[in-house]
Amino acid sequence: MLRCKGMVDLPQPRAGRDERERRWLTLTRDTLPHLARSRDWPVVADHCFQRILLDHACGGRWYDHISRRPAYAHAPDAVLDAAIALGEAVANDAADLHALNAQSLRWRGKKPR
């Protein structure tokens, strides 16, 4: 904690967290939805990409592992890093979004389309 005389304790910023969150938001709100327009992907909305990537980073439904919302802001660094890496793999055609989405839906008890 940073201590200032006569002031309340201020939390120290977490190194690199702001950059992680910027990368996450750019990836899921801009990059992946933009790429979805020209690819045969099962989802196009930002929240769908976020669901799929966070589920896989957590190994199940993200909300069973991250109790507060927005999930990306409360996810441990390692989880957010894994979700970003997976999203980048999807963007680079190194991961199968169809399979990732199907598994995410199965974790929710839904039938993949």
Rank of each mutant, 00 (worst) to 15 (best):
His56Tyr: 06
Arg51Pro: 05
Ala94Asn: 06
Asn101Val: 12
Leu86Ala: 06
Cys48His: 15
Ala89Thr: 02
Ile52Pro: 00
Gly109Asp: 08
His74Lys: 11
Ala102Lys: 07
Gly87Asn: 05
Ala73Phe: 03
Gly87Phe: 05
His65Ile: 12
Asn92Lys: 13
Arg106Asp: 11
Arg108Glu: 11
Arg106Glu: 12
Pro70Asp: 01
Ala102Thr: 01
Arg108Ile: 10
Gln50Arg: 15
Ala57Tyr: 01
Arg51Tyr: 03
Ala99Ile: 04
Asp81Arg: 15
Ala85Arg: 07
Leu97Asp: 04
Glu88Lys: 09
Leu86Val: 11
Leu54Ala: 04
Pro76Asn: 01
Ala82Phe: 04
Pro76Cys: 00
Arg108Asp: 10
Arg68Tyr: 12
Leu53His: 01
Ala99Thr: 08
Gln50Val: 09
Asp64Gln: 15
Arg108Lys: 13
Phe49Cys: 00
Leu100Asp: 04
Arg61Asn: 13
Arg69Asn: 10
Ala82Trp: 00
Gly60Tyr: 06
Ala94Phe: 03
Ala95Gln: 03
Cys58Ser: 02
Val79Asn: 06
Pro76Tyr: 02
Lys111Val: 15
Leu100Glu: 04
Pro70Leu: 06
Ile84Trp: 02
Ala95His: 05
Leu105Glu: 14
Val90Ile: 08
Ala85Thr: 09
Arg61Met: 15
Leu54Glu: 03
Gly59Val: 04
Ala102His: 05
His74Thr: 10
Tyr72Met: 14
Ala57Met: 02
Leu86Ile: 10
Leu100Trp: 09
Asp81Glu: 14
Ala95Pro: 00
Gly87Ser: 09
Leu54Ile: 02
Ala75Trp: 01
Trp107Met: 09
His74Asp: 04
Ala91His: 07
Arg106Pro: 07
Leu100Met: 04
Leu97Thr: 09
Asp93Phe: 06
Glu88His: 06
Tyr63Val: 13
Phe49Ala: 00
Ala91Asp: 01
Leu97Val: 07
Ile84Phe: 04
Leu100Val: 11
Lys111Leu: 14
Phe49Gln: 02
Gln103His: 12
Ala82Val: 06
Gly87Glu: 04
Gln50Glu: 14
Phe49Trp: 00
Asp77Met: 03
Ala78Lys: 10
Cys48Trp: 10
Ala94His: 13
Ala78Val: 14
Leu80Gln: 07
Ala85Lys: 00
Ala91Lys: 11
Ala78Thr: 13
Asp64Gly: 13
Gly87Gln: 07
His74Ala: 12
Ala75Glu: 03
Asp81His: 07
